[in-house]
Amino acid sequence: MSAPAVGLHEFSVVSNEPAAEGLMRVVLSAPALARELSAGQFVNVAVPGDASQVLRVPLSFSRADGEAGTVEIVYAVVGDGTRRLAAMAAGETSTAVGPCGNPWPLPAGARRACVVAGGVGITPVVACARMLAGAGVAFDAVVGAQTAGRLWGADVLEGLGAGRVVVTTDDGSAGRAGFTTAALADLLAEGGYDVVYTCGPEVMMAGVARLCREAGVACRVSMERMMGCGFGACNTCNVAMADGTYRSCCKDGPVFDAEEVAW
């Protein structure tokens, strides 16, 4: 069966509330879009409020509920577009382009996985965990944030059935002090993983990719670029590949095999 075509979807805001320091959680009512999205894909949202801003905001989602017709997005408020999105109230409407990009793959025969999130990379990682739970694949999780106040998602992963959830913070205010890569190294040393999924700062994902390569474990990464159009037309979101070529983050990604990326 072919994947749903990228389309334009109207949505209304159900709720839009703080999730953590600097993070917001918006729930959109968009029934057709919610039914078509697969974990790892993204949506390109038109945020009203400034007619001079013609580009949409590309956002990963943490949950697409086809039955309820809703899409949950946890996003960082970092620029004009996301600041305007944070100001949208329940009942306000706009449009989103989607489903965009390729989803997280589930390797045949996978029995145990680990998901690794850094910062707002937790959003597509939570969607990945939902996919794993739905497929009956056991998983552990590593969740990193700068500080306890910016932490979101660890309890969600526990609720989805994660075997272990290791929290790391840069300042040690929650979980263990340090980086997600150190926690992942400890888990990989125990063995037993078929695949690792990760999203977060690129330097973190490069470290995760290196650790997985050394451990002989498959690794899938969700890359971040400024994706102006969301479907491969504007050629602004190129990702350098290990073979010397470039691929489009929005059309060929955002999920890539870590071994394909030029870190």
Rank of each mutant, 00 (worst) to 15 (best):
T245K: 08
R225P: 05
L184A: 08
F179H: 13
L132S: 05
G175H: 04
G163A: 00
C100A: 04
P4V: 10
C212S: 00
A141L: 12
A5D: 14
G101A: 11
L37Y: 12
A141S: 11
A110S: 14
V78F: 07
M88H: 07
L59W: 14
V45C: 09
S94M: 13
A145F: 06
L85E: 11
F139A: 00
Q41N: 06
E72I: 04
S222L: 14
F256W: 02
G144M: 02
T95F: 13
A90P: 04
E214L: 09
R150Y: 01
F61L: 05
T70M: 04
A20K: 02
A19R: 09
A113S: 12
L160Q: 08
S94I: 12
E21G: 07
A76H: 02
L28I: 08
G253I: 07
G200T: 07
A39R: 03
V156M: 02
V78N: 05
G153I: 12
V26L: 15
T93Q: 13
D252V: 02
D50Q: 03
M226S: 10
D186C: 08
A89K: 14
A240M: 01
C199L: 07
T168L: 05
A162R: 11
A117H: 02
G216N: 00
A135E: 13
R210P: 02
E36N: 11
G161Q: 01
E92L: 05
T95V: 15
E10I: 03
A206C: 05
F139K: 00
L188F: 11
D186S: 06
G136W: 05
A96R: 10
I73Y: 09
C237I: 12
V45Q: 10
A148Y: 09
G175W: 07
F139D: 00
C234E: 12
M241S: 01
N102R: 15
G66Q: 09
V97Y: 05
A117E: 06
T236H: 15
G192D: 05
C249W: 01
L106A: 10
C199P: 10
V45D: 10
A233D: 13
L55D: 15
M204G: 00
V57I: 13
S38Q: 14
S60M: 08
G144K: 01
V166Q: 09
G149I: 11
R220I: 01
P58A: 01
A64S: 13
G253F: 07
A148H: 05
G153P: 09
N16P: 00
A129C: 09
P31I: 10
F256M: 03
A258E: 02
L188G: 02
L106I: 11
M1T: 15
V261P: 02
R56A: 12
E259R: 08
A117S: 06
A34E: 11
N102V: 14
E92C: 02
G178F: 07
S94G: 15
A64T: 05
P4M: 10
R150D: 00
